[in-house]
Design a protein around this nucleic acid. Structure first.
Lengths: 156, 156
DNA sequence: GGTGAAAGGTCATTAAG
DNA sequence: CTTAATGACCTTTCACC
């Protein structure tokens, strides 16, 4: 189920330099070309590596404001609310959670003023009882995975 | 500053089928290969496309539990708390926010029981006054960017 | 290991803002 | 006049059998 040290080094290498091909990777890692290909195939087959899609920066797209909204949902309205939020482009992800609220979603907007428009659109739905928004000021730790990969590689 | 329709189609294509090369992409989009290369270079130069790193699934790595923790920080301890959280592999991202708490972080764990260990490590730091955790049950909208890209492409 | 294919670069030409 | 797109050609490099 897990990954080993070589898998970890391979993922780390691909993360730092996505351009490197299988051949170049085998040289860097000091293993045979076939080994790298087999590892890569296995990592993708087991779902550890989902793919190599483009990493897009919302800020560079013109959406520099990020916020997290905690939503309280009217009983039984969950499915409707999900469908509604899925139609809003500025909703980058949505989770159902335990705790204070029922859902947590990540939003982006063109400005603080524009965020109001986005929130209005998000909460402008009968199934949503209440919304609490936290605007992101800084992002000391951007979304990362490498430390976890190395941890998993050590565990076996 | 923004992106046009061709940029949008290119990003969408790369997102759906990351394997397609520049040549294949040019065929699919009905433009010259050099055009695709120029667009790609420009998208990366402007930071819209950060790169093509591997998309790793924490669940497949053995960390199926995700949670969001809202942290309240003691005045002036922000920098120390950031440094502390950056050393915890299970902390996938960290934001400073307005609103109820001072920081919001995304955590993963091997199990609900393991989550307790992670939280203990996260909050086991003098600068953190209080922590409120929301465990993710479902993820109706996984982290996405394409709808926003298409929105941005339409706007010009 | 060999081979067909593609990436990446340069260039002149043409089109469009 | 500046910017962008195109098609051609070339060399290096890689992926696949």
């Amino acid at each position: 189920m897990g990954i080993d040290a070589l898998d970890g080094r391979l993922i780390t290498l691909l993360d730092q330099e996505p351009r490197v091909g299988v051949l170049e990777a085998s040289r860097r890692l000091g293993v045979a070309r076939g080994t790298v290909q087999a590892r890569l195939d296995r990592l993708q087959a087991t779902g550890v590596v989902r793919g190599f899609g483009p990493q897009v920066d919302p800020a560079a797209l013109g959406y520099p404001v990020t916020a997290f909204a905690t939503l309280e949902i009217r009983q039984g309205q969950g499915p409707d609310v999900r469908a509604h939020l899925a139609t809003v482009p500025e909703v980058l992800e949505l989770h159902t959670t335990t705790g204070e609220g029922d859902m947590l979603c990540r939003l982006v907007a063109r400005s603080n003023a524009d965020l109001q428009r986005v929130i209005d659109r998000v909460v402008g739905f009968a199934g949503i009882v209440r919304a609490s928004t936290a605007i992101v000021m800084e992002n000391p730790v951007p979304l990362r995975i490498i430390p976890l990969v190395e941890q998993a590689a050590q565990d076996g």
